[in-house]
Design a binder for these strands. Structure first.
Lengths: 202, 202
DNA sequence: TCAATTTTGGAATGATCAGTCAATTATAGG
DNA sequence: CCTATAATTGACTGATCATTCCAAAATTGA
């Protein structure tokens, strides 16, 4: 433990980062001014530059934090004991809540459309995390298939991609008015098609 | 036909609008400077303001043009004689091409995420057109159901929303690297699940 | 008290951008 | 030629923004 000389930092680095994350999440990168950040984080402008570098670095750090939180939550859900399809339902419920709670959608989705095609660092990060997400989903579906809970007309990988695509679509539309009924239609029908056993031979 | 006095416009209004559309499509609203527009449209800055009002008005006009083109193409496809499911395949093929050709995705999707939650006019326009799209798709699916080509585990409306959601998701990810295999997985599995007849009772 | 370090905020920089103004030039009908 | 309209161009305004510089406090350990 290194003892510090001089005035110590008056704020918690993680906590302030979290505040910044929420601002970026709700407003996006471009629409967020430095002033918005310092106000929400409760620190001065110079402190921000001293501790995080610049706006872009802070954004990247916040985005990384967000994606890891999401991935962890998902991993944790899938590792619980119980039926794979039940976990899938939980995943859908989580996604639905995210799409509705604060009307800011999924930050990964927002990032990819706002700066993904300009900012290489952001694009790489998101692509990597997306791939991880797909892997997790695929594993779950493979377990479901082995448990006989799955429509085996399509491969787990293709199914994982379909689910992720639909979820991505929902999140992307969360900005406009997106009522509960519509979300239920999308997730419900997807689940029905996935669960439904292939042509039951009698 | 009213005869004009004075120097006539040296450019075609529609043609220039089309050029602006493509710039907005590829770069988005914020990242497009007036200079980019005038250069692509081949007109002077003042001419732009004279004929279209301002940047926002021009964007709205371009977006409206885009959405109407897309809706027309879809309507036209669905009205052709032939199997509804075949039309659905065509629709998927169109969407795939759009997601891959120029890596700019669907302009409706881009708009909704970039400015949808700030710009009311854009939000209203997109919501309206999306609803039309959903209606067209739903009609097609109802025809497919009557023709017995459809998995009847879910309603045509819910299915239409699922398809639109997945397509939306694909378009949103077109910005990042999105390889053909992934698109095929999403659209292919969706089609397989839709087409597959419900548990065939023997 | 001294030295180190952080916090805070004002001021300035440098850049970009949308939109306006005005002067000039070009092209049509009468 | 005359006049109305349009195109072009450059300069200018006003605003916003990220970033840096700087100087004055505040807070710790020695």
């Amino acid at each position: 433990m290194k003892r510090m000389r001089g005035r110590p930092k008056a704020f918690d680095r993680e906590q302030a980062l979290d505040a910044a994350l929420h601002v970026f999440w709700q407003q996006g990168y471009g629409a967020t001014a430095i002033g918005d950040l310092t106000e929400a984080m409760g620190i001065g402008r110079q402190s921000l530059y001293d501790t995080y570098g610049d706006k872009h670095a802070l954004y990247l750090e916040a985005l990384r934090r967000y994606t890891e939180m999401r991935l962890d939550a998902m991993r944790q859900t899938f590792e619980q004991p119980g039926s794979p399809v039940a976990h899938l339902r939980t995943f859908f419920a989580m996604w639905k809540e995210e799409a509705m709670s604060c009307n800011s959608g999924c930050m990964m989705v927002n990032s990819s459309t706002e700066v993904g095609h300009v900012d290489d660092a952001v694009a790489r990060l998101i692509e990597k995390k997306m791939h991880r997400l797909e892997g997790l989903l695929q594993e779950l579906l493979e377990r479901a298939r082995q448990a006989g809970e799955l429509n085996d007309a399509v491969s787990p990988r293709a199914l994982a991609r379909l689910i992720l695509g639909a979820a991505h679509g929902l999140a992307a539309r969360a900005h406009l008015g997106l009522d509960e009924e519509e979300i239920d239609d999308v997730l419900g029908s997807l689940l029905a098609l996935i669960e439904q056993p292939a042509a039951a031979v009698t």
